[in-house]
């Protein structure tokens, strides 16, 4: 017996060249106005400096200015915090995603709701709620004191910033992994079991490789926003752990130096692009290496 797979192309909607270009026109206008033009502006500001008389001249001076510990340290700190956040999110998110995808129990829907529901609440509100939980006279400290423990200083530390990023971005790790695992064909696992593979072996030989694309899009969705965040370090970190996002924000706001702010933005953009490129590569290598086509 031979099973023939339908070529994927059959399901595509056929779109004529002319009507297709008209239909994409609004999107193109949108992209030009709100993506391309701002990007070009950042590029232009980034490679110029303002002269005392207000004119602009092309110069890479601001790139040299960036090579200074007071800007490099926040960049390294951002990278460190984003890496820790991503690793912890995989460790916490993978089991949850696995159970949600593989279990047929009814309560999984409730768990999914509990994960998604906080995201309907404004981001700033959630940050402020953490502050009121963790502050010196906050809910957790009041509880500790009433139980006879000493007050703890949770706020304004690197730890609380990491907590904030993990809390905010964890759902973005769970969802893509769960999505991929939902599509995992049970017959693969059954066949492996029939052939005598232990549960552990089945997990490492089938489930884990199958979920790599989900993990990778999860990594992209957690790492990128945590490496660029500035609100969390501002509101929970009290600006005592400045991140690269804070440097950019202060250049556009307080310092009023749009040129240097744009230069830093360009550098961060380059790093994020390189990172995305690297994980896209591993994405393909991982999947192809294991002979799975998804």
């Amino acid at each position: 017996m031979e099973l023939k797979r339908k070529p994927a192309d059959d399901t595509r909607i056929k779109v004529g060249k002319k009507s297709g270009s008209v239909m994409t026109l609004p999107l193109i206008i949108w992209l030009v106005c709100f993506v391309l033009v701002p990007l070009l502006l950042i590029g232009w500001y980034g490679i110029t400096v303002e002269n005392p008389d207000g004119s602009m001249s092309v110069s890479f001076e601001n790139f040299k200015r960036f090579a200074d510990p007071i800007y490099l340290n926040p960049l390294l700190r951002s990278a460190k915090i984003a890496t820790i956040t991503t690793v912890v999110c995989i460790a916490l998110g993978y089991p949850v995603a696995y159970i949600l995808a593989r279990s047929t129990a009814k309560w999984t829907n409730i768990v999914m709701m509990l994960i998604l529901m906080p995201m309907w609440i404004n981001f700033m509100l959630r940050i402020y709620s953490w502050a009121s939980l963790l502050e010196g006279n906050g809910i957790i400290n009041s509880l500790l004191v009433s139980l006879g423990f000493e007050k703890q200083q949770f706020m304004y530390t690197e730890g609380v910033v990491v907590l904030g990023t993990i809390y905010n971005f964890l759902p973005f790790m769970i969802m893509p992994i769960q999505n991929v695992l939902l599509k995992l064909d049970n017959s693969l696992l059954e066949a492996a079991a029939d052939l005598g593979a232990s549960p552990v072996r089945r997990f490492f030989k089938i489930t884990l490789p199958y979920s790599v694309p989900g993990i990778i899009s999860g990594v992209a969705m957690v790492f990128v926003p945590s490496v660029t965040t500035f609100v969390i370090s501002q509101r929970l970190g009290g600006n005592k752990v400045p991140l690269i996002g804070n440097i950019i924000e202060s250049q556009f706001g307080m310092a009023g130096d749009w040129n240097f702010g744009s230069t830093v933005s360009l550098i961060v953009m380059a790093i994020v692009l390189a990172f995305m490129f690297a994980i896209n590569k591993t994405d393909r290598a991982e999947v192809n290496g294991r002979g799975l086509t998804l």
């Binding site: 804070n246 307080m254 310092a255």
Partner: peptide, 20 residues
């Protein structure tokens, strides 16, 4: 005037002085 940059630099150094 253009001395704003000196203040900005000092301030960034102060915020960065906490090595955690």
């Amino acid at each position: 005037g253009d001395k704003n940059k000196i203040y900005d630099r000092i301030w960034n150094e102060v915020l960065n002085s906490q090595q955690s």
